[in-house]
Design a protein around this nucleic acid. Structure first.
Lengths: 213, 213
DNA sequence: GACAGCATGTAATGAGTTACATGATTAA
DNA sequence: TTAATCATGTAACTCATTACATGCTGTC
């Protein structure tokens, strides 16, 4: 009971806990939070920058963080710190209930799925968009990993970072491989309309997949 | 220009186009749209059921669909149909601009990332949640694929469905494999706190990944 | 003939994004 | 010394979800 939820307070959103988690590694300003997000959260819990300026206020109102006003020139800046109660709430949340389902959202894959109403170039463009984004993410991942290998990673987070890194790496590799495979599938097509040969091939693809289990 | 956007109308959301795409394969009621969504869109463009009752109204107001009122007992029911202008708008949208970036959202992976503030059982539970969801999705995919193999798939969509099916299949297989790998990594740990051995192993994981490219 | 699940829809709420405004810092 | 970029924050608005209400249909 203690510290988790005060009377009259609405329960915090998952995003609020995500930010509470960021604060757990030290006091930070909203801008510093955005920097953190760009190397971690962004890949599995993406949120707009403005969220990082808003959400900490909710933490403060719940007593899970404190706001320290400070100034830079004649401009104010707020540095947030997690409270002991905040640490308890975070720990409790991490063990409570089932996490919500993973979701994938891809406009490019949606366009692939609707490709019977488009043109062959449109289909190839959608596939390519997926490949390009995955390449960009892999490049970013390479940057981050290289920094860690060179300068030594944050020692207290390295083991956990590696678990998450491997997830994102595998995911983006899968995307590239799928895009290459899909290109090869579409290569012999002259257009996106159905044909007996394409239908035949589709059945092969399905049964190949099922056999893999 | 024609049919794509009427004066004074706000541009449609991606979700609206997704539903327009569903309507492109025939007139349907909102409930029928939900059934379609459950076997396709749900996996790469998930939306709440109520959206399928609301969004078609926007299509109608843009002239991209028509609403036909009908009754079931003394209850009204609306059947939506795509218009020629709607088909043009769909086709145009499928070729216009860059699709927005793919996003992944996983509370379970977030919990993994925050596991330094949790307990070893909490970490394992988060990993397991990912595996279980992937298993469930693979089972659902198996159902759908089996139906297609047995009764013959919709011939006009089979080739495209196969492309998307393979994407989702590979993705969920990757999730299961990652979860098994992560379990094995965590197995020797006695708790979630950092240690020199864990840090050493983390560096190996990173360099293994980089070598794979 | 009542209960469970299917089907149809609306309203209230809330989470999140886009757009905006502006000060501080750095490099040309 | 000015332009570009970094940094800080708010406000308006949109998209989407949750909750609700209720009728229909099949089954025990």
């Amino acid at each position: 009971m203690r510290g988790v939820r005060r009377a009259g307070a609405t329960p915090l959103s998952v995003s609020a806990y995500a930010i509470l988690g960021l604060l757990a590694s030290g006091p930070q300003s909203a801008y510093q939070l955005t920097r953190q997000m760009d190397r971690s959260l962004r890949f599995f819990w993406p949120r707009a920058t403005s969220k990082l300026y808003e959400a900490p206020k909710a933490l403060v109102s719940h007593g899970l963080a404190t706001a320290n006003a400070d100034t830079v020139g004649r401009r104010r800046r707020t540095v947030y710190s997690i409270t002991p109660s905040g640490r308890r709430a975070l720990r409790h949340w991490l063990g409570a209930g089932q996490p919500s389902a993973l979701t994938l959202e891809s406009e490019a894959l949606l366009r692939v799925w609707l490709a019977t109403h488009a043109s062959r170039p449109d289909l190839l463009a959608a596939i390519d968009a997926i490949r390009e984004q995955a390449h960009a993410t892999l490049a970013r991942g390479t940057e981050i990993a290289t920094e860690h290998l060179d300068h030594g990673p944050p020692p207290e987070r390295a083991h956990i970072n590696a678990l998450v890194f491997r997830f994102l790496w595998d995911f983006n590799q899968m995307l590239v491989r799928w895009a290459d495979w899909a290109d090869a599938e579409v290569a012999p097509w002259t257009d996106v309309s159905p044909s007996p040969a394409k239908q035949q091939r589709a059945l092969e693809v399905l049964s190949d997949a099922l056999r893999e289990r």
